[in-house]
Every structure is written in C-alpha cells, then in structure tokens.
C-alpha cells in the first residue's frame, strides 16, 4: 500500500480521471466540467437583481459548486492523510505579497479566459475531447498555445 502515499504515476491517475466521464454520465447524466462554478459562486456573492447578466443555466450547472467543495475536501484528505512527505504545489515566491498579486492577476486570466472559451481543461480537454468534439479540440490547442507563448516569452525576457 506504500504507493498510495507516493505521487501517483500517470498510468494510474490518467485512466482514473478519464473514468469520471462515464461515471458522471451514468449516475447523474452530468458532463464533467468545472469553470462554470465560477459563475455560480459570483451569483452567490452578488445581489439577486444582478443575476440576469450571467445568463447562467442553474438547472444544468448548479451542481458544480458542490463538486468544487468535494475537490477541496479530496485534496485535503490526499495531502493530510495520504502523503508520505510534505509536497509543495506552489513555489516559495508565491508565498509573498507580490506573489499573491501575481496569482490574483493570473486568476483573472483563468476566470475570464475559461468563461470566454466556454470551458476549461476538464470541460474541453477531458470531456470535450472524449466526445470527439472539434470545437473542444480548438479550445484545447488554444489553451496550450497561450501557456507555451507565455512560458517562451517569460524565459526570453
């Protein structure tokens, strides 16, 4: 059982992540996806009069906030009880005021970009590609284009 406490290999983790596609479809007829939870959370934080601006489908996407609560719990359990070492997921420089400002700015790009693109890595790159949807392939290639461009520029400058 020692492997459970080590970081998992792609050969275990990847297929398990893929199984969420049929598991969510079969149980709840739900499509894997997370970024629309941002809209739901925005609406929870804003007065009702302004909810119309989101043109958000509660019936189809309302469950995602519960899903994100679960993600936090799962990550807590994984790191607190199923990890042999303390693993850092963010670099030291982000534990500073400047780092937090950078993360906030980067987070704005994540929130704006995923909603503009109508999906994120789970909705487009996992679910969308699993149903062989060409629009999700275009979105996925754009995600990587943006990330590669930024990484390339930041290593040159």
């Amino acid at each position: 059982m020692e492997w459970l406490y080590e970081p998992w290999t792609w050969a275990v983790a990847g297929p398990l992540i893929g199984l969420f596609v049929p598991a969510l479809l079969l149980t709840m007829n739900g499509k894997l996806g997370i970024s629309s939870a941002f809209e739901h959370l925005c609406m929870m934080l804003m007065p009702k009069e302004r909810h119309a601006m989101f043109s958000f489908n509660w019936k189809d996407n309302g469950w995602k906030v519960y899903f994100t609560v679960g993600i936090m719990l799962g990550a807590y359990i994984a790191t607190r009880f199923f990890s042999s070492t303390d693993v850092a997921f963010l670099p030291e420089q982000y534990h500073s005021l400047g780092g937090v400002i950078t993360l906030f700015a980067g987070g704005m790009l994540v929130g704006f970009g995923t909603r503009y693109a109508n999906g994120c890595t789970s909705g487009h790159s996992i679910f969308g590609l699993s149903i062989l949807q060409p629009s999700s392939l275009k979105a996925t290639l754009s995600f990587f284009a943006g990330g590669l461009l930024y990484t390339l520029l930041s290593s040159i400058l």
Binding site: G107, F112, G113, S142
Partner: peptide, 13 residues
C-alpha cells in the same frame, strides 16, 4: 474558444 482559450492558457502558466 480561441481568444478566451489563449487568455486562459496564459493564466494557467
């Protein structure tokens, strides 16, 4: 899907 995708990709990095 393209414009937003690229913006998100930068934020992801």
């Amino acid at each position: 899907f393209i414009y937003g995708g690229v913006i998100f990709g930068i934020g992801w990095a």
